[in-house]
Design a protein around this nucleic acid. Structure first.
Ligand code: SF4
Length: 345
DNA sequence: AACACGGGGAC
DNA sequence: GTCCCAGTGTT
């Protein structure tokens, strides 16, 4: 990219940027928080969470003092819950070492901070001359170059990163980074890019070819596998059995009804056996069936209810639906509970 | 290098 | 239905 292109880009940004709260700050905490929230997440979706977190935890020390369950409850609905767990762990670590690291290389060592986020914090908070490379920048650059290299190959990332690091101006690395991302978000969009409004239109190869949507090229497509999830609402004396999901896999660390994950729908025999293993006795009632889509899973969920005759001797936590309000649960379970109990989980 | 990991908006 | 979003961690 020539200097004139970069100047056009920066000028365009000055006149067209959105007013986003984290852009008014050079506080590494606010920038870090916003960047974690916005990983694979649209600004529109993340904005409310950003306000919620900043209000509840104005400083990184406040976030460090919170319990992980509280953080995950606030993260509920945003997805990619390992972000919430890493957010809390990093808040503890940063508080421990007395503040955020101030270089790209040091930021990269933080949990939940990869190449994109490290570059974002380093450039936005500390004006380090390191380029961000996110989905927007990949798309803009792939089109501008007219590149047929798959953007999900490591070699392409390295190549793009080297070009950007060559172009990023020393006196305004933060503005350059935000300009590239903003251009991808507002003009060089995945579908129907507005090339006629683009500050790079005269130098863009894809625009010259008149086929911007031929780019970018990807080699992999995420495959969606089917999965059956059988949930059990186990009641004893006004309380319901819950478990805390493991720190691996889907909805890691969230609270959940006891459930079984299988490839095929569970048979009644399998269900009866499972309940016997748990020591659950009582009449089994089928309640609800629904489907839930994740990026990589197509889930068929079936919900059963048992009014237990005795307290099963096992590892469940028995809580009231009211107590559940302060615990993080999946959107699938939240939708179910809202449908059945009109509670706000 | 390939895969796991959410949810929602736009088309 | 499809695509993909201010990506990172694990294997
Ligand atoms: S001219 Fe079109 S394709 Fe090229 S960078 Fe601008 S919006 Fe993207």
């Amino acid at each position: 990219m020539k200097n004139a292109d970069i100047q056009s880009l920066l000028f365009w940004y000055g006149g067209n940027k959105r007013d986003l709260p984290w852009r008014n700050s050079r506080d590494p905490y606010c920038i870090w928080l916003s960047e974690i929230i916005l990983q694979q997440t649209r600004v529109d979706q993340g904005l409310a969470y950003y306000y919620k977190f900043v209000e509840a935890f104005p400083r990184v020390q406040d976030l460090a003092k919170a319990h992980l369950d509280e953080v995950l409850a606030m993260w509920q609905g945003l997805g990619y819950y390992s972000r919430g767990r890493n957010l809390h762990a990093t808040a503890l670590h940063v508080t421990e070492i007395g503040g955020f690291p101030s270089t790209y290389e040091a930021l990269l060592k933080l949990k939940g901070v990869g190449p994109y986020t490290a570059a974002a914090i380093a450039s936005f908070a500390y004006q380090e001359q390191v380029a961000v490379l996110d989905g927007n920048v990949f798309r803009v650059l792939s089109r501008w170059l007219g590149s047929h290299l798959p953007i999900d190959a490591a070699s392409t990332r390295n190549e793009f990163q080297a070009l950007l690091n060559q172009w990023i101006p020393a006196d305004s690395p933060d503005i350059f980074n935000q300009s590239m991302m903003e251009l991808g978000a507002l003009v060089c969009t995945p579908k129907s890019p507005k090339c006629e409004e683009c500050p790079l239109q005269n130098s863009c190869k894809a625009n010259a070819e008149g086929n911007a949507t031929n780019y970018p090229v990807k080699k992999t497509k995420v495959k969606v596998s089917a999965m059956a999830l059988t949930y059990f609402e186990l009641h004893v004396a006004g309380k319901v059995a819950f478990v805390r999901r493991s720190n691996n896999g889907i909805w890691a660390g969230l609270y959940d009804l006891p459930s079984c994950s299988t490839e095929q729908e569970m048979t009644i025999d399998e269900i009866v056996n499972q309940l016997r293993d748990w020591g659950v006795q009582g009449e089994l009632e089928f309640c609800h069936e629904t489907r839930h889509l994740l990026s990589h899973r197509k889930i068929q969920a079936r919900f059963y209810k048992v009014l237990c005759e005795h307290m099963p001797s096992n590892e469940f936590q028995w809580i009231t639906l009211n107590e559940l309000k302060v615990l993080g649960i999946s959107t699938l379970l939240k939708n179910y509970l809202e449908k059945r109990y009109t509670v706000v989980a």
